[in-house]
Amino acid sequence: MSTFIKDFIERETVSRRNFLLASAAGLGSMALPMAMGRDAAMAAENPALAWSYRDRASAYWNAVVSGGENFVESLGKTKADMTSLINEGSSEKSLADIKAFLAKNSGNCAIACDANDSPNARPVVEAVKASGGYISTIWNKTDDLHPWDIGDNYVSHMTWSDEKPAEETARLLFAAMGGKGGVVHLGGIPANNPAVERLNGLKNALKDFPEIELLDAQPADWDTTKAAELMASFITRYGDKITGVHCANDNIAYGVIEALKAEGLEGTIPIVAYDGNPEAVQMVMDGTLLATVFTNPYWGGGISLALAYHAAIGTFKPSEEPHEHREFYGPTVMVTKDDAAAFKAKYIDSTPTYDWNDFWGPSNGGIVYK
């Protein structure tokens, strides 16, 4: 981490002194400029805090938001001091809610956000910059959108290198299938980066297994109900040709299991998933799932908001950081039956304590574009 703490304290002391002098001179009530014109005194004031995400019904997003809340509590605030902007899977609502939050707080905001789909990231970060707020994003953005091109207000973007872990789960699945048969893939929202990468991981593994056929790959939009309906249609269409199922996330796997159960097929077809949710880890321990992949959403949720907050108050200047601190991968851990019990004890039965000032400690290097 760069040595900016000492510089920040010195800047803060000077800024507060200048602000007090300005107030004494009758200038304290002047309107403060927005965007890049915001001065250090304004940046040092408490920014309004928010997390913009899909929904909290999902164990994954609940973990993300819980991490954000833990960071907020580390500041001596309460969970209620962080606003949840729930977009319900709508990119339009995501953008509208963020704009409303910015307007309500005159741009003095620190926001963490999953933009819901990749194209929505640009209008979101441009709205934040125009208002003078600060934002860190996760998962979804287009490859041509970079924080350093937008400026300090777009603090950082974190994603996970899903292609390799998804390939590893596919290889585990193929081994369980005996190296032959038919596999179906149930994916996420097609415009989501993780959905694309997880399907690519499956396709990469298939290159080494000529006797395994990809029967079908369709989006289930990360949704359990849609996954159950899609899997039921796959069973109708392909029947006993299906000898393995590759799921883009745990919620999808739950739907697949329900569909198999309805047909009396539960436990007869190996399944792999992604996210490392508590229910999925238990299913790995029970043998219902072969594997899942943990992306530490709790840490991701906390550190994304921490980065936006510290940039907003002036603890560090994002443009002075290397590119790998502006765009970086989060950690991934594959969970199999061999290590599921130890994993559960460490990450589920108890929550590791994180230093929210260690911005990049558990990260996995800068994002690489193909």
Rank of each mutant, 00 (worst) to 15 (best):
K164H: 13
N192F: 06
D223S: 12
A227P: 05
I212E: 00
E211I: 08
A175G: 12
H157I: 01
A176L: 02
L199A: 08
L95H: 00
K180N: 14
R198M: 02
K93F: 05
A130V: 02
N87Y: 00
G187S: 15
S91R: 04
E126S: 08
K99E: 14
G201W: 06
G187A: 14
E197N: 13
M177E: 00
C113F: 01
A110I: 02
K129F: 04
L85H: 06
P123K: 00
K104Y: 06
R198C: 00
F101H: 00
P210E: 13
T169Q: 09
V183C: 09
G188Y: 03
N108I: 03
G182E: 09
D223H: 10
P194K: 11
W160R: 08
T225K: 12
N193W: 09
E163Q: 15
G201T: 12
G179E: 11
L215E: 07
A170E: 06
E168M: 14
D144G: 07
T83Y: 02
D221C: 07
I98Q: 03
Y134E: 02
L102D: 04
K203I: 10
E163Y: 06
S90D: 13
A195M: 10
H146F: 13
P165F: 07
K129V: 04
K93W: 01
S118F: 02
G188W: 03
A205D: 07
N200S: 15
P147V: 04
L214A: 09
I189E: 08
V184E: 07
G132H: 05
S91P: 09
P119S: 09
A191W: 08
E88G: 05
N193D: 12
E211S: 15
F174H: 11
P194E: 10
K207S: 14
A100S: 13
E167D: 11
A175W: 01
N87C: 11
P219W: 03
V184L: 09
A170W: 00
K104S: 00
I150S: 05
A195S: 15
E213H: 13
N87W: 03
D208P: 10
A195W: 06
D97Q: 10
A130D: 14
R171M: 13
A220D: 02
A217M: 08
N140R: 06
H146L: 15
W160G: 07
A170H: 04
L202F: 12
N204H: 15
L199E: 14
P190S: 13
A220V: 08
K207Q: 15
K207C: 11
S84K: 06
A220F: 04
K203P: 09
S84Q: 11
E92R: 08
E213D: 12
D208W: 11
